[in-house]
Amino acid sequence: MTQLTILELFPEHLAVNGDMGNVIVLRERLRLAGIDVTHVKHNPGDDLPDDVDIVTVGTGPASALRVLEASAQAIGDRLRGWRDDGVPMLAVTAGMQLLGSRVIMPGGAVLEGAGVLEIETDASADRVVTNCFVIDHAELGRLIGIENHGSTMALTGPVTEAFGTAVTGRGNGHAKHEGARAANVIGTHLQGPVLAMNPVLADHLIELACERKGISYSQNEGHAKLDSLALECRRILARSANVAVDRPAS
């Protein structure tokens, strides 16, 4: 069996909203395709593996960001190296903020992030909770989940662009931008968890990882069954917000 390594960053602090589900989704989809997975959890003070294929980091409270600042900086060089090598990464809300350049905390304290994404977060904004958070992505189409954060986010560097366009909710709070992307690193406010709700994004990360490894990933009816349930979940949220489950053809 071929093998991929998934590195989950700070699961003890940044999995407050079911974010471990993103790893569950990647593992099961890979297992269904006959690809074995090594799941490495990285908590503060742990050593990083030499080689990784996919990196995930979830969301958590402001207090978690404060205690993780030093640990995130300590692995910043390694994470930026993997970014430059094209390793796919998924960072959700607080995890995205921590992988960014800096976070201005409520009260004005500035927290320096890992510098993987060129983003600056202002975490003193009003809370936004969007029970049907819809974003459109040029290639992946419409993604649906839940938004829950108290921040706005600015893209500050030449290589980092918005991940998608916010159709509902706040997103980054600027120009309908949602999330951030640099090389194969994706940051988003989509929760739900995002990969369970949107298998197209899970497969995108898997395909990037498999391409780097030179292995092939093919889906079967097991994936199709999961995908139809996920579609039904997106439909339920979309219906509640009266939006289309698919991006309208332009």
Binding site: G18, G21, N131, G192
Partner: peptide, 12 residues
């Protein structure tokens, strides 16, 4: 039910 707004926790 619909009242269970954010079910992300099911994965925890």
């Amino acid at each position: 039910d619909e009242g269970s707004k954010d079910l992300s926790w099911l994965y925890a």
